[in-house]
Structure formats: C-alpha cells, structure tokens
Nucleic acid binder design. Structure first.
Length: 155
DNA sequence: TAGGCCATCTGGTCCT
DNA sequence: AGGACCAGATGGCCTA
C-alpha cells in the first residue's frame, strides 16, 4: 500500500463523502465547460477545459458590451465608506484601461487556476473521482498535510 | 428546479 | 499613475 492509498483509507472518509467520490461521470474533466459561449465568446478551450487566447480581440468586444449593461450599478451602491482618515482617491479610467484591466484579471485568475490544478495533482484522490472543486482541493490538502505530519511525528 | 461551482466584469484599495 | 489584489455581482453549466 503506497502512501497515497494508505492516506485515503483512515483519515478521509468524511471528506470523501463530501467530495462525492463515487460519482463516475467525470464530465467536468472530459468536457470543457462552455460558458459565455455566445457570439464573440472570448474563450477558446483545449481538451482539459482550460482556456487560452486571453488577449483576443473578442475579449475586448464582449467586455465592453457587458460593461455597458447590468454591471453599471455597482460603482456607486457598493462602495464602502472610507475607514481611515485618508481622502478617497477617485480613480477614473478610460474604456481602454478598463479592458486592459479585464485582460489582466483574466490572466491572474488563469494563473490562480493553474496553481489549483497543480495542487489537485498533489492531493490523493481515486482515479475515477470527480474533479475536485477549488474549496475541496484546499480542504483536502489541509487534511493531507496534517496526515503527513502525523506520519513524520510517529517515526 | 434549486443549489453548487465557475468565469468574468467591475470598482475599491494597496503597493511600487 | 498604473498594476496587483480583492470582493461583490451576475449569468451559464451541471447535477441531484
């Protein structure tokens, strides 16, 4: 029994049940998710569901279209009161800057998801198990770390 | 159909 | 000034 298998047996069944290990559909891994797939979609997908082409022209088109719509209310209604005595610095950005910020944010989230993918590969799961969500990955990693620490302490 | 998960947009704040 | 980071909002997809 290797370390990963032995780890799964005693310590994880509470988490295992949460993660629905018996689900063999595995669709989320095999089929890339096609959200926001409308005309002008800014995602091109590859086999594992990751997306590329983060700086495509389509991204600019769709983001500007969305920015003209339902998200406009958040600028004034959700701004928190200034906590410190500092005067609030109202930052005015152009449409081009907003689009550039959107692209940077997409790249940032992409790298974050890459890190989650790496972490997913480090934590032990059954081969047929459904792809772990991000929160499941974090929780499982914590349990795994604790388990490994216990092993080290018992030596 | 409701709820979970995720991608994306957006504005505010912090930092360089 | 501008990039990074963050959290809220929103909508789409999937599953029970």
């Amino acid at each position: 029994m290797d370390v990963q298998t032995s780890f799964l047996c005693p310590a994880m069944f509470d988490l295992v049940s949460e993660a629905n290990f018996m689900d063999t559909q595995n669709k989320s891994i095999l089929a890339p998710k096609e959200t926001h797939g409308a005309p002008g979609s800014y995602r091109s997908t590859e086999c594992n569901g990751r997306y590329q082409d983060l700086t495509s022209v389509h991204a600019v088109d769709i983001s500007s279209a969305r920015s003209n719509g339902f998200c406009a209310l958040s600028s004034t209604s959700t701004s928190p009161p200034a906590i410190s005595g500092k005067p609030k610095r109202k930052r005015v950005i152009s449409g081009v800057q907003r689009q550039a910020a959107n692209i940077r944010e997409r790249k940032r989230m992409f790298s974050l998801n890459e890190a989650f993918d790496l972490l997913r590969r480090k934590v032990p799961t059954f081969a047929y198990e459904k792809r772990l969500s991000r929160i499941e990955t974090l929780r499982l990693a914590m349990v795994y770390i604790d388990f490994m620490k216990e092993i080290l302490n018992n030596d």
